[in-house]
């Protein structure tokens, strides 16, 4: 095995690319869970976003339009979840699972004609001056716009949740919907908006995989990334910056694993390819062993105003 073939600067750069979809999806889910809703349909919304973004990207030749459409399709799918759980008061776990199954079916139905096509992809955006710094420049400041956007979104989510009135209301709804309702806040409306935001983020995340990271469409290409995003939210104790850390750590493991395969490591390929999932389990165990701090108190509970 030739470890010297692994270039650390390149490793960090590709780590950021590989972490971006999980980061986007996990950030969206974090906002949803902060309002007390558990949407297990991330995987379904991601894969739908992946194919919708890809289809529009291929047909119009514009990846930007693809991303916009992917966000819309993710949001639309999440609206179905929102209506079911918020207005028809269905069980959130079951509905989220249903959303994933629907999304997987829908995506492979839409995706059939698109197999084996290459899509237009996003151009790299070299940040002026910063990208000229040796080593750090190509590592951090020479990415496509979605990578910067995802980091900016982390900062924005953090700031809104922590410093604004809207963030406070959002958290209040997630901690105690009855109290928030008594104060006159529209619990259901706030939750629907959060669910839409989560869906749009998941859609973007999916499109990032099919338009930038791969960039191709294959059936079931998200391969559990949506579920890993759910695990990252738990890992992050529902804090935006920790979502960033979690996603980047995870991206690091994935990239390292691929690099080790390429470098001809003496580890069986199956062990390497199951390692992301095993590591997710291990991290979940470590986090949960420390106690369940940070989970919104009303997470997964059904709200009906008449009670």
């Amino acid at each position: 095995m030739d470890l010297s073939s692994i270039n650390p600067a390149l490793l960090i750069a590709s780590l950021m690319v590989s972490a971006t979809p999980i980061l986007l999806a996990a950030l969206g889910e974090l906002v949803v869970e902060k309002t007390g809703v558990l949407n297990l349909g991330v995987e379904g919304m991601m894969i739908t976003g992946a194919i919708c973004g890809f289809a529009i990207g291929v047909n119009t030749g514009s990846p930007v339009l693809g991303f916009m459409f992917a966000a819309m399709s993710g949001a639309l799918l999440s609206l179905a979840f929102g209506i079911l759980t918020q207005y028809l008061l269905s069980n959130q776990v079951a509905t989220g699972l249903g959303l994933t199954l629907v999304g997987l079916g829908l995506s492979s139905l839409i995706g059939k004609p698109y197999e084996g096509i290459k899509s237009p992809t996003l151009q790299k955006m070299e940040l002026p001056i910063l990208s000229d710094i040796p080593i750090v420049g190509p590592m951090l400041f020479s990415h496509d716009p979605m990578v910067y956007f995802s980091v900016a979104l982390v900062a924005a989510t953090w700031a809104v949740l922590k410093y604004t009135r809207a963030g406070l209301i959002l958290r209040a709804v997630g901690e105690s919907h009855d109290a928030a309702h008594a104060l006159g806040y529209k619990v259901v409306r706030i939750r629907i908006l959060a669910i839409l935001f989560g869906g749009a983020c998941a859609g973007l995340a999916g499109a990032y995989i099919s338009l930038v990271r791969v960039p191709q469409w294959t059936e079931g290409m998200t391969a559990g990334a949506g579920w890993i995003a759910l695990a990252i939210v738990v890992f992050a104790s529902w804090k935006p910056w920790r979502v960033l850390i979690g996603a980047y750590l995870f991206g690091g493991v994935t990239v390292l694993q691929l690099n080790l395969q390429a470098a001809g490591a003496k580890v069986p390929i199956e062990v390497l390819s199951m390692s992301p999932y095993l590591i997710t389990i291990a991290v979940l165990v470590i986090i949960s062993a420390r106690g369940n701090h940070g989970a919104p108190a009303a997470l997964g509970k059904i709200f009906h105003a008449s009670q």
Binding site: L99, G105, S108
Partner: peptide, 19 residues
Amino acid sequence: AAIQLFQGMLLFFLLATDV
């Protein structure tokens, strides 16, 4: 794939009508 979607929809409508 249409059948897979069909099965998923079935679960969705069931959860919706359970109200």
